[in-house]
Amino acid sequence: MDWMALSDAEWTAVRLSLRVATVAMLGSLPLALLAAMVLARGRFWGKSILNGLVHMPLVLPPVVTGFVLLLLFGRRGPIGAFLAENFGIVFSFRWTGAALACAVMGFPLMVRSIRLSIEAVDRKLEDAAATLGAGPAWVFLTVTLPLILPGIIAGMILSFAKAMGEFGATITFVSNIPGETQTLSSAIYTFTQVPGGDAGALRLAVISVFISMGALMLSEVFAAFAAKRSVAA
């Protein structure tokens, strides 16, 4: 089993990937919930434009998404410069940039999943809650949110899985710096580019399969639990 022993550099890539995927998933959740709510319930001019924007990363080549991020969030990009000056947040060539790229790529998947579950909520239950004295915020927290929980969990898992596998946008936006932006995918790619790197690529590939399977199975457990709690009356 010696060949399975990971080197420090490989461990770093695994840990970085997990951190990037987790931060991308959690960071995009509030915004995805808001976007899903607006798309599912809102009626306003330009709704289809918003819908198109949200889905953009799904249809664009990842390289293009990465390039757009570089333009907007790079050190000289309008948003990147603003954030760096006022809040000291830097994305370019940092692991935070990898997280941003992964969050953007996973966003449409998360929004879609949450939106579908919001559309499936029986609004009559929300009316009932209002007649019992619950204001709009409480109705959302005590009725809507618990009922869409399975959709939220599914969306989070999709986003996490997407982040674990993200390659094109990440490498375009933040490059492939070991210890900073070299995620599992980039590390595997690097191994395949050097002579004798096959063993390393295989080790990381096996790790990648285990993490993905683990995430999927965890999501099944959560989804089953959430579904049991919210069987339609």
Binding site: D122, A128, A130, L132, G133, W138, V139, T142, A232, A233
Partner: peptide, 28 residues
């Protein structure tokens, strides 16, 4: 609606499926 304090019993019961009967009763 939520400030009127008018109880409403609907044609279909509209109980909250994610809550037990006890917590449905305690909701309002």
């Amino acid at each position: 609606i939520h400030r009127r304090r008018f109880g409403y019993v609907f044609q279909e019961a509209r109980l909250f499926p994610h809550l037990s009967v006890r917590r449905n009763l305690a909701y309002g």
